[in-house]
């Protein structure tokens, strides 16, 4: 969609490992993707697949024993890997912002909203308090908070959960960052509030050209929001492409399995009016400590062959649609049966 524009973020073969007693684990394993200005990238996968670690790596927030051991992270052409901590800190909250599942990770419970927002602005640019306050007010209004002047004087505990999350989003927007990484920010919210926030984020990124990475385990959220999707399994991106390519003609057996496991709102009951059993992915997600050799999905995959004991190659199925698999599903097989 934005292919002609220079990407905001280029992540190449990013690898993040945790040293540990029982040997090191690779939480992020040669992950590569781009995000263009104004584009929304959905990063999906089950618990422990490495979504948050990918986000933390891009933000320079990996703490020991974790370490980025390979690859590159280029923001508007500038390499971030190996940046001194001080410079990375200057980028955060300014050029890159993060929104967490729990807004209280961003908000300070003992400070008024205006104090926190003015500090965020003035930490990164020389403006007067009044000008910073004005910016804060505008940011609250932009995320749809009614009577922003009043809300500025509130403490976090005086706001509802949905309102708090919107304040956290407003803080992320304050300095018009190039990139926002949102880690499951609406998972704890109600459908109606979630829908409002998704809508606001979508519009804001379109209008301001901010690139957005939306981390979630919910494929349905991605379907309505993202331009492109990356599916992670055991630290690797196993499939990526446009949202339509990945969700409508998935090529990786794991993506197909995830879609089949999702109780979609369009299931047809059988003749007796009873629901059909959901198709299950057999087995469980592996522990990163004991990954099988070759394709990590092999023990659960119905298409596995002896070939899959080797590391699977990236196969380009269509323009921009890539799967890491020896036996990807054809477009016809991937279509929802």
């Amino acid at each position: 969609m934005n292919a002609q524009r220079e990407p905001t973020l280029v992540v190449g073969r990013l690898t993040t490992r945790f040293a540990g007693l029982g040997g090191a684990v690779t939480a992020v394993d040669e992950v590569s993707f781009n995000v263009a200005p104004g584009e929304v990238l959905g990063l999906v996968g089950e618990s422990g697949s490495g979504k948050s670690m990918t986000g933390f790596s891009i933000l320079g927030l990996v703490d020991p024993p974790g370490e980025i051991t390979g690859g590159s992270i280029r923001l508007k052409g500038r390499e971030l890997r190996g940046l001194p901590a001080r410079e990375w800190r200057a980028l955060r909250g300014d050029r890159i912002a993060m929104i967490f599942q729990d807004p209280m990770m961003t908000l300070n419970p003992v400070l008024r909203i205006d104090t926190q927002m003015i500090e965020t602005v003035r930490a990164h640019r020389r403006v007067s308090r009044d000008a910073a306050r004005e910016m804060a007010r505008d940011a609250l209004a932009r995320v749809g908070i009614p009577s922003p002047d009043e809300r500025l004087r509130a403490y976090p505990h005086q706001l509802s959960g949905g309102m708090r999350q919107r304040v956290a989003i407003a803080i992320a927007l304050l300095n018009a960052p190039d990139l926002i990484i949102a880690d499951e920010p609406t998972t704890a919210l109600d459908v109606t509030i979630q829908a409002q926030i998704l809508f606001e984020m979508q519009t804001l990124c379109r209008e301001s050209g901010t690139a957005l990475i939306w981390i979630t385990h919910d494929l349905a959220v991605v379907a309505g929001l993202a331009d492109r999707v990356c599916v992670m399994y055991a630290g690797r991106i196993v499939e990526q492409g446009s949202t339509a390519q990945v969700l409508e003609t998935p090529a990786h057996p794991y993506t197909r399995g995830l879609l089949d496991s999702t109780p979609a709102a369009n299931v047809q009951p059988d003749k007796a009016g009873r629901p059909q059993p959901l198709r299950q992915i057999p087995g469980m997600a592996p522990s990163l400590k004991e990954l099988p050799a070759g394709c990590a999905f092999r023990p659960r995959c119905t298409r596995a062959s002896t070939l899959c004991e080797q590391t699977p190659p990236e196969v380009e199925l269509a323009r921009g649609h890539v799967a890491r698999c020896f036996h990807p599903l054809s477009a016809a097989e991937g279509l929802k049966s």
Partner: peptide, 13 residues
Amino acid sequence: EAPTLKVEKKRFL
């Protein structure tokens, strides 16, 4: 407003 697997840009409103 309920999210579904249908790939379409929603107007959540």
